[in-house]
């Protein structure tokens, strides 16, 4: 008799556990906070400032989504993740979305069952080396000791690059970017390799950035973007179109200066649809009409976010390059709002 009671209780508990996969949007609204996975700290992309407030290019995506969904760009719980913990954190539901310099690859999309909701930065893997070594090309790196973040796509690209060029190297696997920089600066490795944007970001924090050069070779394609779990397409749509809203805003010339004026209505129907004065795109997403206006209102459009966090006037000093709008010869392109 006792046994039946226990088994009954266990069965109920089991059923409850099975039914716990509800819609992420409802969870976020009920919680009043967006859980967003970010890096443990890459200058310009995601790093807490002197006041402990998270700032950066990836952080801006989180804040835009929070503003669109919850109406408050500060209602974000930033969860720092390493290259190792990020996918488990997302798959287990600990975070609602991951905006962490994560490369969109086939196996991550298909096999690991994540949904990449677009690309916010087109990157490629590069090499950084002290200028005093006098190496000018990555093909001269035969025999070099290379510091590398373990568990990333860069690790595989590195193996492929050295193998296809038929030169040898000694990998030094390291858990986080900060530790890698420490070892690189101590001379425990000759070369540090990761995404070129992160190299530029880390170099900006060095005592003497000019003593280090970034090789001209880019050995891989690294489209970085936010991602969510498979299976909740409504939530995936919200993250995707929030990013697209920032990109479209730049294309249409909507920025933080003219946002208030344009949201009163304009001659361009697409701006009107974007900002919610025409049509009901917001309702289709399960949000209100002004979702995109709030997202753009946080820190401006894509171009403004880029310029403020990692652009040429910041210490990181990245040019737009591939990340210019398609109208300026770049790859940044959003499907139309209609």
């Amino acid at each position: 008799m006792k046994k039946t009671v226990i088994l009954g209780a266990l069965t109920v508990a089991g059923l409850a556990a099975g039914a716990a996969a509800a819609a992420t949007l409802d969870d976020v609204k009920a919680r009043g906070k967006l859980n967003c996975g970010v890096t443990t700290g890459v200058p310009g992309f995601a790093e807490p400032d002197a006041n402990g407030v998270w700032q950066g290019f990836d952080v801006a995506v989180c804040r835009a989504v929070a503003a669109a969904v919850l109406g408050d760009s500060t209602a974000v719980e930033f969860v720092p993740t390493t290259g190792k913990t990020r996918f488990t954190a997302l798959a287990s539901g600990e975070i609602d979305m991951l905006a962490r310099n994560t490369t969109w690859t086939f196996s991550r999309d298909v096999d690991l069952k994540f949904e990449f909701t677009g690309v916010n930065y087109y990157d490629g893997q590069g090499f950084m080396i002290p200028a005093e070594l006098g190496v000018s090309s990555a093909s001269e790196l035969d025999g070099a000791t290379v510091c590398i973040q373990t568990g990333t796509t860069t690790e595989l690209n590195l193996a492929d690059f050295f193998r296809s060029n038929n030169i040898s190297y000694e990998p030094v696997p390291i858990e986080t970017g900060a530790e890698a920089v420490q070892q690189y600066n101590a001379g425990a490795c000759d070369v540090y390799t990761t995404d070129a944007s992160a190299l530029a970001a880390q170099r900006a924090n060095f005592e003497d950035p000019s003593a280090h050069v970034i090789m001209p070779e880019i050995i891989s394609k690294e489209p970085l973007g936010p991602l969510v779990r498979h299976g909740d397409h409504e939530w995936g749509d919200i993250v995707r179109w929030t990013l697209n809203a920032l990109i479209t805003a730049e294309e249409l010339g909507v920025n933080s200066a003219n946002l208030a004026e344009l949201s009163g209505g304009s001659n361009n129907p697409e701006i009107n649809r974007l900002l919610g004065t025409e049509g009901d795109l917001g309702a289709m997403l399960g949000l209100d009409a002004e979702w995109a206006k709030r997202a753009i209102g946080v820190a401006g459009n894509y171009g403004e976010v880029f310029a403020k966090n990692i652009g040429e006037d910041t210490p990181i000093g990245l040019a737009r390059g591939l990340n210019a709008q398609w109208t300026d010869g770049g790859l940044i392109y959003s499907p139309p709002f209609r």
């Binding site: 290259g83 190792k84 996918f87 488990t88 196996s107 991550r108 096999d111 690991l112 373990t150 568990g151 690790e155 595989l156 030094v172 696997p173 390291i174 858990e175």
Partner: peptide, 24 residues
């Protein structure tokens, strides 16, 4: 071992292989 980047079985099988294949 992974703290110092020594590739023991936790670093290869339980580290990189786990992350690259997702077979946790």
């Amino acid at each position: 071992a992974i703290a110092v980047g020594y590739m023991d079985v936790t670093g290869t099988l339980g580290g990189i292989t786990l992350l690259q294949t997702g077979r946790a």
